[in-house]
Amino acid sequence: MTTTPSPDQLLVLLEVARSGRFTTAAETLGVNHTTVARNVAALERTLGGRVLVKGTDGWELTALGERAARAAEAVADAVRRLAAGDAAPDPVAGVVRMTATDGFSAYVASPAVARLREQHPDLAVELVTMTRRATSHRSGVDVEVVVGEPQVSRARALRLGEYELGMYGSRAYLERHGVPRSVGDLARHGLVYFVDSMLQVDSLDAPRRLVPGMRDALTSTNVFVHVEATRAGAGLGFLPCFCADRHPDLVRLLSDQVRDRLPYWAVVHPEAWRRPAVTAVVDALRTQVDVMRDVLLGAPVASS
């Protein structure tokens, strides 16, 4: 029996490590779930230990699995060079999977990726929107963009920049209910914001801390729902300025008293950081945040 891992087994492991799911890896590779499981089991027998363990967010690499994944990346790179023939292959290629908040995904990540793909057309980015803390071990996600400084041990954390949030009301709503002139006035209005019981990011508690008497009017896990609900007059919304200032029908209230600034951080796990495509995406995000610095900090933008 050979003691050398099969290249096919290594490539299967690499895809499971990137997706965190046997089923997703199978779809990407064009095989069935059983074939993926059989290749992983065979690789573990050859290497004499577990390469994957079940985590809360999918399959995660063990220490042995990380070594095998590094070998798999070398195999995948060799295949890309072979396919490229005489031309040097573009290392910024393949799929990069990332998570980020709704607003960041739409207004920062999207243009950053669009520009990056102009230079690297073989790059694809899968972007899942969510607002949560960074996970210590998250298999299948290359980059996590989170709000607030992450507490992670194995991953690399990079500060991208800051954004500002403020209290807003629609012009029609303010005509009907009056313009609040003090923080005390705000407490007489309903709040449009995140669902308190589902809020996983402690630093996003600002409106309930700044205006403790303000009651919830409409809550959602999606910031674009906050914006549209505020525009519709459901209440006053505590909104990212770079999202709200795009809409001329929204008016910022008490900007010198009710405001908060929060940082965006990118979290990249070790197995992902070795990929040129991942580092290129992170660099593109940092550049885009720098370009948008004034807008993120509350300078008005053109309406859309």
Results as ranks from 00 to 15, higher is better:
R188T: 07
A217S: 15
M214W: 14
Y193N: 10
P207H: 04
V211R: 02
P212K: 00
V211L: 04
V211N: 01
G190D: 11
V227H: 12
T219G: 03
L186H: 10
D202R: 10
A217Y: 15
V225F: 04
L210A: 03
L210F: 00
A206H: 10
G213E: 03
F224W: 15
V211F: 02
S220T: 07
V201C: 09
G213S: 01
V201D: 12
L204A: 01
V227E: 14
V211I: 04
T219D: 05
S203A: 03
A206W: 06
A217D: 15
F194S: 11
T221W: 10
S197A: 12
A206Q: 01
V227D: 14
T219H: 07
D216N: 11
Q200F: 06
R209E: 02
V195K: 11
V195Y: 07
D196K: 04
M198E: 15
R188V: 01
T219F: 00
L199K: 07
L218S: 08
D216R: 12
L199C: 13
S203K: 00
P212W: 02
H226F: 06
H189W: 04
A206K: 08
R208L: 02
L191Y: 13
A206I: 07
H226K: 04
S220N: 11
P212M: 01
H226Q: 05
A217I: 15
A187Y: 07
P207Q: 08
M198T: 15
D216I: 05
S203L: 05
R209L: 02
L191I: 11
V195L: 10
F194I: 09
V201A: 09
M214A: 13
S203T: 05
L186N: 10
L186G: 12
L210M: 04
D205E: 09
R188K: 03
S197N: 09
L218W: 02
Y193E: 10
N222S: 12
L210R: 05
D202W: 08
V211T: 02
V227G: 11
G190R: 13
P207R: 06
Q200Y: 09
Y193S: 11
D196L: 03
A206G: 05
M198C: 14
S197K: 11
V211C: 03
T221S: 15
L210N: 02
P212S: 00
R208P: 11
V192S: 13
L199R: 13
L210P: 02
L204M: 09
R188H: 06
H189F: 13
G213N: 01
S220W: 03
P207S: 07
G190V: 08
V227F: 10
D205C: 02
V225N: 08
P207M: 06
L210W: 00
N222C: 03
P207W: 04
Y193G: 09
M214T: 14
P207F: 08
R188I: 03
S197G: 10
R208W: 02
A217H: 11
H189M: 06
V211K: 00
D202F: 05
D205H: 06
H189V: 11
A217V: 15
V223E: 14
S220E: 06
D196C: 08
R209N: 00
Q200E: 12
T221E: 14
P212D: 03
F194V: 09
H226W: 06
P212Y: 00
F194W: 09
D216A: 10
L218M: 08
V192P: 14
L191K: 13
